[in-house]
Design a protein around this nucleic acid. Sequence first.
DNA 1: GATAAGATCATCT
DNA 2: GATGATCTTATCA
Length: 169
Amino acid sequence: MKLNRNFFNRDTLIVAKELLGKFLVRKAGDKTIRAKITETEAYCGPDDLACHASKGMTPRTKVMFGPPGHAYVYLVYGMYHCLNIVTEKKGYPAAVLIRGVELDGMNGPGKLCRGLKIDKTLNGTDICAGKELWLEDGKDIPKNKIKKSKRIGVEYAGKWKDKPWRFYL
DNA sequence: GATAAGATCATCT
DNA sequence: GATGATCTTATCA
């Protein structure tokens, strides 16, 4: 059961919360990997200083300004990739960072992308097309199981760094 | 157990 | 030329 574009065309915080427990599916060669999402973070809007798009649209961040349901992949610190799902309507920069999935020894965005062979060639991929990367519905997570906390690694973002926009199980 | 530093490069100034 | 949505390894207490 693939998630359709309407799922992503909603408030970023809602999407981030509901992505927990869903399955991230990655097709690499002849292998297909399904991993349950256990940790997400919301990055939304031009006002959120922790969001890359807050500095305006650049060649890198333009995917976030595009329509929902696309992958925003980029390289951080020269070594690791991060996977994001673009949310909300076209023209509004917002995305959900997939921080962790339930798969042996794979927590943290860097390891996740290394394990799933995600790199910048997937940047801009349409998740709803479901060719190499897509999302599947999973068991509903009871709302009271979801925990939240401050985001990580965004100390430079001023007042935005304390927003409880990180969700996990 | 906790904290610090190093790797390494696309992107922006 | 500076810097970052990270992870691993080394050093210290």
